[in-house]
Amino acid sequence: MNVLETDWWAMALPPEWWGEVDEDEDTVLVGDQDDVGCIEISTLHKADGHFDQAELLRIAGNESEAEQQWQQVELGDFRGWRAAFAEGDAAVREWYVANGSLLLFITYSCDLDNRGMDDGAVDELLDSLTTNR
């Protein structure tokens, strides 16, 4: 098992998955060798205070491009909201999760024909999220 680590958080990656950190954009891309889909993780920081669940849900509702049925989720050290939808010929899953003043916006997308194929593996990866504070 490999560990993908940023300045703010870390995640375990099985050998068949890869990760790239773009520190200029505070964005991370994660995918598997089969190229079924891709995870993108953006890191945001709150200048003062902490994110609460009501604020996260408000952000998710305002930022998401499609109207969602949001469900609460726990990913490792992070808590927040998730939704899934189809957009054109893509299946998309989104998460807005936070720990203290750190918010992660996570998307996973793949071809609509591959919907659900990597869901278990993606969930397992995201469940390994830890903070580096």
Results as ranks from 00 to 15, higher is better:
L4G: 08
L4D: 02
L4W: 05
T6R: 11
T6Y: 08
D7S: 15
W8P: 00
W8M: 03
W9P: 09
A12N: 12
P14F: 03
P14V: 08
E16Q: 13
E20Y: 08
D22I: 03
E23R: 05
D24S: 13
D26I: 00
D26K: 12
V28M: 04
V30P: 04
G31K: 00
G31I: 03
D32E: 14
D34N: 06
D34E: 14
D34V: 06
D35E: 14
V36W: 06
I41Y: 00
T43N: 05
H45E: 14
A47V: 14
A47E: 15
D48M: 09
D48V: 07
G49S: 04
H50A: 10
Q53P: 06
E55V: 04
E55M: 15
L56V: 05
L56R: 03
L57G: 09
L57V: 10
I59T: 03
I59G: 01
A60M: 07
E63S: 09
E63T: 00
Q68F: 05
Q69I: 11
V73R: 01
V73H: 00
V73C: 07
D77F: 03
D77Y: 02
R79A: 14
G80C: 06
A83M: 05
A83G: 11
A84M: 09
F85Y: 15
G88Y: 13
D89Y: 04
A90E: 14
A91V: 07
V92N: 06
R93Y: 00
E94I: 08
W95V: 01
W95M: 09
Y96M: 10
V97D: 09
N99M: 06
S101T: 07
L102H: 10
L103Q: 05
L103R: 03
I106L: 09
T107L: 01
T107S: 15
Y108L: 09
D111N: 14
D111E: 15
G116W: 08
G116A: 10
D119H: 09
D123A: 11
E124H: 15
L126N: 01
L129C: 10
L129Q: 10
T131M: 10
N132A: 15
R133P: 05
